[in-house]
């Protein structure tokens, strides 16, 4: 199934880094996020769009994960030539990831 069936996301920027918060709709699905949505899989999902590392943090109290995608905005801020220079749509892109229930 797609990640969008059990989670919602919000993304934003810090310089050339994108952050994506991934939040389980139901607390019981949080372990599925922890197991399925790894830093490696997120990095692979975005391919050449993310030039640097992907780091994952866990927030079990919110049933959420936080990902930092480094070197993902073509320089970031005012330097970026991208239409989504602030990474606003990265969270939506992640919702298409295929995961095991």
């Amino acid at each position: 199934m797609k990640l969008s069936e059990i989670a919602h996301t919000r993304s934003g920027d810090k310089g050339d880094t994108v952050n994506i918060g991934v939040i389980a709709y139901r607390a019981e699905d949080y372990p599925v996020l922890v197991r399925e949505v790894t830093a490696e899989r997120v990095k692979a999902h975005f391919g050449e769009l993310v030039k640097g590392n992907v780091v994952r943090y866990e927030l079990p109290n919110l049933g959420a994960l936080n990902f930092l995608l480094e070197e993902a905005l073509g320089g970031g801020g005012t330097l970026s030539l991208r239409v989504d220079a602030q990474g606003k749509t990265f969270g939506a892109a992640l919702l298409r990831m295929e995961i095991e229930a």
Binding site: H8, T9, R10, G12, D13, K14, N19, G21, I23, Y57, L59, L62, G63, A64, N66, L68
Partner: peptide, 12 residues
């Protein structure tokens, strides 16, 4: 929750 995670780095 969405806003708590917005532009967040290390949550701790």
């Amino acid at each position: 929750k969405e806003q708590l995670l917005y532009e967040l780095g290390d949550p701790k």
